[in-house]
Design a protein around this nucleic acid. Sequence first.
DNA 1: AAGGTCGCCAACCGCTAATTC
DNA 2: AGAATTAGCGGTTGGCGACCT
Length: 201
Amino acid sequence: MDKKPCKSQDFEVRKGPWTMEEDLILINYIANHGEGVWNNLAKAAGLKRTGKSCRLRWLNYLRPDVRRGNITPEEQLVIMELHAKWGNRWSKIAKHLPGRTDNEIKNYWRTRIQKHINKQAEMCSSHMSNQELHDHQASTSQLPCNSSTSFMETYSPMSSFNHGNIELFPGRQQQHVVDQSNNENYWSMEDIWSMQLLNGE
DNA sequence: AAGGTCGCCAACCGCTAATTC
DNA sequence: AGAATTAGCGGTTGGCGACCT
């Protein structure tokens, strides 16, 4: 396993961001040989990467069925519902969002939703007296407003959600729309796959 | 205009579960 | 049965661009 990293004399392991060349090598190799054992794949393909790194790159970025771009309000809703149900089981949640990766969902949760939860917690605690806080904790065995469950109570589809018109992040909605128009700025997988085709694969 | 801060996300790390020998 | 190997998961970090002062 990766607990036993490749001997340094075997090859120097590259780390950090993947180059376009490395991506193409990996894509070509998998297109020709399939996935197989990742450590062997990395060596056979001539990549100076660990199998683990190759796997992650393929699963999270290079796979043709990976969906990139903004999380839709519907997907957001699913994420929140499933997170309330299962907690940080990102891969489990990702299975219910075709084309989305656990890493993407995890990042989304931490950068967008969790931040909002923390804000809620702050507001909540600033509006609650110490006695109220104590009573609340005693009755729920949870920190007030600090769990996804309480967040879902506040923002559940039954209450303030309106499908397709979520005001979860006031002030950010506009930015999301703008971001969607910027998707062309990404080096899209269609580009890579077409490059691969041009390479004669 | 420049420096500082924030937000996002790709990639790494450590660990456990599953599989193979 | 158990040691070794591999796959997968979740947490964390570092880099970079956007935004703010």
